[in-house]
């Protein structure tokens, strides 16, 4: 499959007399294949928006390589800009223009036919409110307008930063359907969002960033599987056998957490091993269930941003790949 978006070793450093040096992007890598809906995840301040802005030519990188549709950036940005639709962070528009004026001006600047404006207004559900000033719009309506502006070019690559922000539940579902339709039509979509349930539902693949470095990437299923840690829930026919089963499994090298009526195992490569080891001791399982992890738990684990009772996590407190103590560089997911 060909890559629509490639980023290798991207660096962006901010220097300030007061705050010193801060590496917003510290050798970040990313790859998005054609036709995919790709989730781009990271805690606040991890470098997501900086990456998107750098990619779109709004920020100058200090190093690294970027390419869109096989063309090197930023040199080829004017050539590929017509094939990239994007919204970055919150939607921003001139408040005194109507949605139709806003899109009409963009369409004229991009030498697009006027009817394209009506098409995208229809697509995002703003047709009947298109003549009203943007300042009268709710956040969700502004978000729809932002998506419309990104779709105006009928791009090959669509980059959406928090597109569901401010949308009502119906709007979120519509957005999900729209992403699927666009992807089915051959458009590649990069989706940055904190609504991880949505990402898990919509996206084919994900990249997770933390403190300017990639901590995980790949198809969603593989990322989840790689970080499920072989968790298995075991119930026995007799609850009274649980202590003996705990001892037996621990001796077999399996990490066991005892619960009142079941055991939670981790580090299990093959669930059948559990069944065999227990059966050899005359202990018979009534339930042996691999526990599926969701994207949220994987995200929290990889970025080390799960809330800890009694602690107030600061925005820059997350996993930094490659630093001592970080547990995210295992396997093939590290940067």
């Amino acid at each position: 499959m060909s890559a629509v978006l490639e980023i290798e070793g991207l660096r962006k450093t901010y220097r300030s007399r007061k705050r010193g040096v801060r590496h917003a992007l510290d050798g970040f890598d990313m790859r998005v294949e054609a036709g995919q809906v790709h989730g781009f995840l990271g805690p606040n301040g991890s470098g997501k928006t900086t990456t998107l802005r750098t990619l779109l030519g709004l920020i100058r990188p200090n190093g690294g390589r970027m390419a869109i549709l096989g063309q090197e950036l930023p040199q080829a940005l004017p050539a590929v800009a017509g094939q990239v639709g994007a919204i970055v962070e919150s939607p921003q528009f001139f408040p005194h223009f109507s949605a139709r004026d806003t899109l009409g001006l963009l369409a004229q600047a991009g030498e697009l036919p006027k009817q394209r404006v009506d098409e995208v207004l229809e697509l995002v559900g703003l047709r009947d409110r298109a003549g009203e000033r943007v300042k009268t719009y709710s956040l969700g309506m502004k978000q729809r307008l932002a998506v419309a502006s990104a779709l105006l070019k009928n791009p090959k690559l669509l980059i959406l930063d928090e597109p569901a922000n401010g949308l009502d539940p119906g709007g979120i579902r519509e957005m999900r359907g729209l992403m699927r339709d666009l992807s089915a039509a051959g458009m590649t979509v990069v989706l940055s969002s904190h609504i991880l349930g949505e990402i898990q539902l919509i996206c084919d693949s994900v990249t997770i960033i933390s403190l300017g470095r990639r901590v995980a990437f790949g198809p969603v299923d593989e990322v989840l599987a790689a970080h499920s840690q072989g968790a298995v829930r075991v119930r026995l026919e007799a609850v009274t056998d649980l202590p003996q089963a705990t001892e037996t499994l621990t001796r077999a090298g399996i990490r066991v957490t005892a619960e009142p009526d079941h055991l939670m195992l981790s580090g299990v490569d093959k669930p059948a091993t559990v069944s065999r080891v227990l059966a050899e001791q005359g202990l018979y399982v009534s339930e042996l269930t691999p526990v599926a992890v969701d994207l949220e738990s994987v995200f929290l684990e990889l970025t080390a941003t799960a809330p800890v009772p009694g602690q107030h996590r600061q925005v820059d407190q997350s996993t930094k790949v490659g630093e001592p103590g970080s547990g995210a560089t295992t396997g093939g997911w590290g940067a």
Binding site: P91, Q92, A109
Partner: peptide
């Protein structure tokens, strides 16, 4: 000034990066 402060300039640069 309004183009800068309302984000219009950024939007335009996404279309016209020069």
């Amino acid at each position: 000034g309004a183009e800068w402060s309302t984000g219009g300039m950024m939007n335009l640069l996404l279309w016209r990066p020069k």
